[in-house]
Amino acid sequence: MTQNRPWIPYLLILPSVAFLALLFVVPLVQTIWLALSDNGAPSLANAERMVTDINFTRSVRNTFLLTIVVVPVQIAIALAMGTMVSKVGRGRETILWIWTIPLGISDLAAGLVWLSILQNTGYFNSLLFSLGVIGRQASWLSYQTPIALFIAIAVAEIWRGTAIVMVIIVAGLNQVPKEFKEAAEIFGAGPWTRFWRITLPLIRPALQSALILRTVLAFEVFAVVYALGGRNFPVLVGEAYNWQNQNQNYSVAAVYAVLIMIISLAATLIYLKALKVDPERLP
C-alpha cells in the first residue's frame, strides 16, 4: 500500500507539476523579468511608460467599471435562473441546455454576434427604424457615444458570461436538501426570507467559486470589447495586446500582464476572506 511507498503519490503528480512548471511558471518568471527589467538590468522604466500612456488610466477605469457592473448582474441573473429552474420538474434539462448555449461560443464570436446586432446597419437599428423610434441609422458603438458603447459591451458580456455562473450556482443549489427550505417555510419564512437566510448561506461555497471565476475572467475581458468598440473602449488586456502587436513593445505588454495578474490575485484573496466558508457551518 501507499504507506510503504510514500513516493507513489508524488510520482503520479509529477507529470502535471512538470507540465505546469514548464508551460506556466517559466513564462511567468520570464514575463515578470521582461516587465521589470531594461536592457538586462532591473528597472521600472517599462512600468513608468505604461502608467504615463494616455490610455492607461482609461483602460484601468474601464476594466474596473465593467467588472463592477457585469459581475453582480451576472450573479443576480444566475441566482434568479437557478432558483427558477429548481422549481421546474419536466423539461429542466432542456432549459439548462438552452441556457448554457453561450458557454459554447467563443468570446470573439460572441462579440461579432453583438456587433451584427448593434452596428449602424445592424438588427437593432432596423428594429428601431421599423418601429419609427429613430428616423435614420443611429450609431451606438462610436467614441461619441461612450455610454451606449459601455452598455452594449456590458450587455454582451453579461449574455456571454452568465451561463458559467449559472452552472456553478445550479450545482450549488442541487446540494441543498429541500428539507431546509421546507422547514423554514413551516416555521413562517416567506420566499425572500428563505432565499436570504437559508438558500444563500447554504450555497456560499458555490457563490464564492462563481465570484472568483467570473471576476478574474472579467478583468481579462478583451475579445468582446475589441469586436464591439475596437480602441474606442480601452481595457487592460486590450492595451497589452496593442503594446505587443501594434507597438512591438513586449516589455510594456508584460507590465500589463503582470498588473492584470496582481489584480486577479487580489480579487481572489478578497473573496476568500470576505466570503470565508466555514466547514463547520456546511450541511
Binding site: 428539507e179 413551516i186 413562517g188 416567506g190 448561506p201 450541511p283
Partner: peptide, 20 residues
C-alpha cells in the same frame, strides 16, 4: 394554504436542522 399559514410546527424525519 401555504405551510406557514397552517399554524403548525413539524419535526422532520431527517431533522432539517439548519447547518449554518
Amino acid at each position: 394554504l401555504a405551510p406557514k399559514d397552517r399554524g403548525l410546527a413539524m419535526v422532520f424525519q431527517n431533522y432539517a436542522v439548519f447547518p449554518h
